[in-house]
Design a protein around this nucleic acid. Structure first.
Lengths: 219, 219
DNA sequence: TCGCACTTTAACGTATACATTAAATTTCAC
DNA sequence: GTGAAATTTAATGTATACGTTAAAGTGCGA
């Protein structure tokens, strides 16, 4: 239960970054962060190294830890990788995950999105959408894909802080989700992949257009 | 020029792992590794954390650092991810990399493979093959994909220590490589992806069959 | 001999100390 | 006043010290 300081540092730094308390582009000395988290520099350094390897920050000698901004170009890269891994997962899920119980979480996320949209609650929708996508990857059963997609999803979440309220309401997006779910249910790997690919491509174009139009760097 | 001890530790530990000097499945105390590398535990720990995040080893409290074996199941996961990222890269390369100079390295790798095969030098062939695949990903221009594919390639290299001399001579593999190169050259993204996908799927099936047949865990 | 409580060991996780050196500041000649 | 050299500062990277605690070892009664 009691977790190590390093682990706490990772968790807390992530929270600080995702909440915007450590804004993109800002610099922070290791000693400042250590004081802030009530621990010595050692676990803070270890945590920073991990987060650096995950692309959330950059350690620059003598300049402190810089929280990395996410540019439109970065988001393009991230969406490209994420799309491939999710499509792989959709295909794999369709190929072997036949048990209906495995699909409950997916179905639930779809319902949650419907509910959230009817209530006009975008935050709720975003959370359910993230749930759908991460569950999809989980069903694919490839642990490397799961880890990598998780990292990419972290960045998508940061971008979503900005894009969520700029984009049109994603009212037809759930049709795709249902299509993917049905394809997996009937074991149609080709369809699962192609429907999801199309789903991601549409979303990607939309979000990237928004970001480039507004020349945004993001939290 | 003078690099940090942490960096050296990463480089040297990688060499020790890839050379088999630290065999898969073996355990090593942080203090042993520190002595071996002539440095204190601190940079060794930092290096081990990085290598752990890359899937090369595992840190187990009080049991030391364990060099992770790569099972057939692991290789399946690794090939799946690598295939997706390489296909993405082939497609992207075809879409934007038109300059002939960009393709020189690819063409060179293909020639090197031909030469190596004629000479019956499998090691040489493997090196050129790795060069082709990594250059392909580089041409895709997605820095995240490049990093991730690099990590996956690290594991493929370890597996190849075992599989290289068990597999049939890859005499027709270069046809695929040429096909991909030509597709990129003429900007045919669909073909680049599908030819490469087929290339990878064939190789993957072959290697996985070998591994499963011999119930191998690998260096 | 076996099993269990107790003691000892030692590996890790973290804190702290310290050497190095990039950056900032000051000094000083002109 | 300006620019370069010298000095000081301070943040990092690494070494070391130390407390905690899982695991190994020991002793002893049955």
């Amino acid at each position: 239960m009691t977790q190590s300081s390093s682990q706490r540092a990772i968790t807390q730094l992530r929270q600080l970054i995702f909440s915007g308390a450590l804004p993109a582009g800002s610099d922070h000395l290791e000693s400042e962060l250590a004081e802030r988290l009530n621990m010595s520099r050692t676990p803070v350094r270890e945590a920073a190294l991990m987060l650096e390897s995950q692309g959330l920050l950059e350690m620059r000698p003598r300049k402190g830890v810089r929280i990395l901004p996410v540019s439109a170009g970065d988001m393009r890269e991230i969406y490209e990788v994420l799309t491939e891994l999710e499509c792989l997962s959709a295909e794999r899920a369709a190929r072997h995950s036949v048990k209906e119980s495995d699909l409950a979480a997916l179905a639930r996320s779809i319902e949650d999105m419907d509910v959230a949209l009817r209530a006009g609650d975008l935050e709720q929708w975003a959370q359910a959408d993230e749930g759908f996508h991460s569950e999809l990857v989980r069903l694919g059963g490839n642990s490397r894909a799961i880890n990598i997609a998780g990292m990419m999803q972290d960045q998508v979440r940061r971008a979503r802080l900005v894009t969520l309220h700029m984009r049109p309401v994603p009212s037809q997006s759930n049709q795709d989700h249902r299509g993917v779910l049905e394809a997996i249910r009937r074991g149609d790997a080709e369809a699962a992949r192609s429907i999801h690919k199309n789903h991601r491509d549409v979303a990607q174009k939309l979000i990237l257009a928004l970001l480039e139009k507004h020349r945004l760097h993001l939290l």
